[in-house]
Every structure is written in structure tokens, then in C-alpha cells.
């Protein structure tokens, strides 16, 4: 089993993403943007890592989404291979139309808008640890294949544009019905609260991650590769000092399991 972490100029999470993938037993390598795209077919799955591809010119992810490697990835995805896009990778998936998978660019990751008590209290870039709830069922998508519904995970976010919006009528209802809303921001008790700091970036319905209808493509703003080892957790979490695994590991284990089951 071999995965590729696709690198663009400006990516900055490719190395730790590869470390995480290898740690759960997948082989893999970093795939530079200017390599022959057809070589992507040798891989069983793909990660689009975080960063600032092409300097976030135009919009975050917009330029990378037009690269030849993404065209090839679209074909690979049509064959059912899994793709997980994290942070800037999620932005690229949205900009390329791979998510939510309607074949069009139907959503956008807009600038973070932090709203508290109905007022905007901050905008833009924000880095913190947040709580996530898995709102889809297990086996529904590649990146949460082994995660049960309702499971809570703690991970860091670090982005300026993670506020998922759409103006397409009926799209959100459909995503909800089809179980395509994979992760939502929630409070420490797992409850919804659609304001800052729980909904950390103002995202519609506190959405943190979605998948395509087929379930092989997941995009998420939080960084599982930075919550992969228990020592990476913040001090308030007692599991920082227990065991070796952090919650982010489940995303990588899921990808591995998804590839195994598919094979």
C-alpha cells in the first residue's frame, strides 16, 4: 500500500503528514507538483497537505486546483481511490469541485468570521485546539472509516479561510441527508454551539469537514497530523501523558483501512 502526499509550492505540512501516514504502516512519498502527473497512478491513495499553495493567490487553493496533478487526481478519484485534503488541501478540493462532489464549484471556504453574542469579535487567521464531533457513520468515508458516529476528537486548527459557505439551494440539506457532513466543531461536552469560540471560524452549521457522495474524498480544516501523538495534545487534556497516540491517528488509520477494504 503506497500513498502520495502531493506537494505544491507553498505547502508546509507535507513532511509531518507523511510521518503520520508511515507511522500507521502505509508506505508513501512526497510527490512534487512538477513531476509527471501520470506517475500518480502508482499510488493507492492521496493526501493534499496544509500550507499556502501558490501563496493563496486569487483565493486559498484556487491556483493549485488548476494544476495538471489535480486533473490527474480527479481521474484517480473517479476510479475510487481515496483522497484526504487537510486545511489548504481541503481548500484545493473545494476549488477543484472534488468536494462536495457535485461536479461544480458549489461551495467556498471564506475568511474566518468569529461571532460571539451576535457580534463579530475577530476575523481571519486563528490557531487553536478545538473539539470535533464525527457526525457521519463509520465506513461512510475514507478518512473516518473506523470512527463511530458521535465520537469526539481534539485537534488543532490553523487557518484564515475555513468558513464553509454555499449559495446553492438545497445543497446543505442534501449533504446532511447523504451523511456527507463528516465533522462539526462542538464544545467539550460534544454539544453544538454555533458561535465563537466553539464554532471557531463561523462555518455554516459548524461544519469542519465534508466528503463526496462516494465517500472516497474527505476534506477537513483541522490538522490530524498535528494531533497524531499524545504528547502533542494541550495540557488540559490528561491523555497528553498517557499512551502514545493522539486522536488524529484515527484519520490515518481510517485511510489505511479504507484502502485495505477496497483492495
Amino acid at each position: 500500500m503506497k500513498i502520495a502526499v502531493v506537494q505544491f509550492p507553498g505547502s508546509n505540512c507535507e513532511y509531518e503528514t507523511l510521518v503520520a501516514a508511515k507511522n500507521v504502516g502505509m508506505e508513501g512519498e512526497i510527490f512534487r507538483w512538477n513531476k509527471p502527473p501520470e506517475e500518480l497512478s502508482y499510488f493507492d491513495g492521496f493526501f493534499l497537505p496544509g500550507g499556502f499553495s501558490y501563496q493563496d493567490r486569487v483565493r486559498a487553493g484556487a491556483i493549485a486546483a488548476k494544476e495538471p496533478v489535480i486533473k490527474t487526481l480527479i481521474e484517480e478519484a473517479e476510479n475510487g481511490k481515496p483522497i484526504i485534503g487537510i486545511c489548504n488541501g481541503f481548500q484545493i478540493l473545494i476549488e477543484s469541485g472534488l468536494l462536495p462532489g457535485t461536479g461544480r464549484v458549489d461551495m467556498a471556504l471564506a475568511q474566518n468570521v468569529m461571532v460571539s453574542r451576535g457580534k463579530i469579535v475577530r476575523r481571519g487567521y486563528y490557531c487553536d485546539w478545538i473539539n470535533l464531533r464525527h457526525d457521519s457513520s463509520s465506513k461512510r468515508c475514507s478518512g473516518s472509516f473506523i470512527i463511530d458516529r458521535g465520537i469526539q476528537l481534539q485537534m488543532p486548527i490553523a487557518h484564515g479561510e475555513g468558513n464553509l459557505v454555499t449559495s446553492t439551494p438545497g445543497l446543505l440539506e442534501r449533504l446532511n441527508e447523504e451523511n456527507q457532513i463528516v465533522f462539526r466543531y462542538c464544545d467539550a461536552q460534544g454539544k453544538d454551539f454555533n458561535e465563537f469560540p466553539v464554532n471557531v471560524n463561523g462555518s455554516t452549521e459548524s461544519i469542519a469537514g465534508i466528503c463526496n457522495p462516494e465517500g472516497n474524498i474527505l476534506g477537513m480544516m483541522p490538522h490530524p497530523e498535528r494531533a497524531f501523538f499524545s504528547w502533542q495534545l494541550p495540557p488540559g487534556d490528561t491523555s497528553k501523558y498517557i499512551g502514545e497516540s493522539g486522536p488524529g491517528r484515527l484519520i490515518f488509520e481510517s485511510m489505511k483501512r479504507y484502502i485495505e477494504v477496497r483492495a
Binding site: 496544509g50 486563528y126 490557531c127 488543532p156 490553523a158 501523538f229 502533542q232
Partner: peptide, 9 residues
């Protein structure tokens, strides 16, 4: 909170 303290993991 503006600083990415987490990158590199």
C-alpha cells in the same frame, strides 16, 4: 492566536 504554533507537528 495569529501565530501558527502547531506547524511541523
Amino acid at each position: 492566536r495569529y501565530y501558527d504554533t502547531e506547524v511541523m507537528g
